[in-house]
């Protein structure tokens, strides 16, 4: 089985997000990026599958600043091959543009399973997995929490609400959007990533640029936030005293 794992970086939400002068995008100058956490789970699930059943894992990304480190990390974790799709995609590339470029590159690489994160925090025009799958003309299952093998087929677990899980059987090729890997994504020390960066060759594929979101952002803004919380400050003792008062008032304590 060849498993291809599309990975992307997203703004780290720990930092304050600012809107730029156009009012239509984030101010990206000082933005810190990190790997989409669900992509991290997708890579983990791919590696778990490979470790149990054999095959290869290929991590694939669209070119952007700092992306080589993402590929080196994937290699250090156990990816056999790492691929960068080159092209001027920009930082706020739409899911449809990214999905088309990914699908074309994945088609040229050959694949049995594509595993990517179920969603990302900036997926304005939808989740990548469904877009890739339809360009590749394969079935697509999302919110996946486990992919295992049963004979020639895959068994895919998909989460519904309330903790209910649906189990599906599918013949490859298939594209899955991973919600959570069966195990917590492995941690790799920096030294190992550095070592991997020396030992692995990043393959480059020129990206197709013909996907389009089909809709435009007219405005970006911070939510007004309903009526908003009454803030009790940052002093733990004072806030705790106030909380006790509130609980007494409401008859909770």
């Amino acid at each position: 089985m060849n498993i291809v794992v599309p990975i992307k970086q997203v703004p780290d939400l720990v930092e304050e997000l600012e809107i730029d002068g156009s009012g239509k995008d984030l101010n990206r100058e000082w933005l810190k990026y990190k790997v989409n956490e669900f992509d991290d789970h997708a890579l983990e699930e791919a590696l778990l599958y490979k470790e149990a059943n054999g095959g290869t894992v290929t991590a694939i990304v669209l070119d952007s600043d700092g992306i080589d480190k993402v590929l080196h990390t994937a290699a250090a974790k156990g990816a056999d091959k790492v691929v960068k799709i080159t092209g001027d995609f920009g930082d706020s590339v739409s899911s449809h543009t990214a999905g088309k470029a990914m699908a074309d590159a994945i088609q040229s690489l050959g694949f049995d399973i594509v595993m990517t994160g179920v969603q990302a925090v900036d997926d304005r025009d939808g989740q990548l997995a469904g877009i890739i799958a339809n360009h590749l003309n394969t079935p697509n299952i999302n919110v996946v929490t486990g992919v295992t093998k049963d004979g020639d087929n895959l068994v895919v677990q998909k989460e519904y609400g309330g903790g209910v899980v649906a189990e599906f059987e599918v013949a490859t090729p298939v594209v899955v959007g991973v919600q959570a890997a069966r195990e917590t994504p492995r941690y790799i020390p920096v030294a190992k990533i550095r070592k991997a960066s020396r030992g692995i060759n990043i393959e480059e594929i020129a990206g197709s640029m013909d996907g389009s979101a089909g809709s435009d952002v007219s405005r970006m803004f911070k939510p007004e936030g309903g009526q908003g919380a009454e803030m009790l400050g940052d002093d733990a003792e004072a806030a705790a005293a106030k909380i006790i008062e509130i609980l007494k008032e409401k008859g909770i304590k």
Binding site: H96, D125, G126, Q127, I131
Partner: peptide, 20 residues
């Protein structure tokens, strides 16, 4: 969970935009 299996695929199949 169910809708995510439909929305993006439908958008590509119909070649129409999706806002999520």
């Amino acid at each position: 969970s169910m809708g995510m299996d439909i929305a993006a695929g439908l958008s590509v199949a119909q070649n129409i935009p999706l806002v999520a």
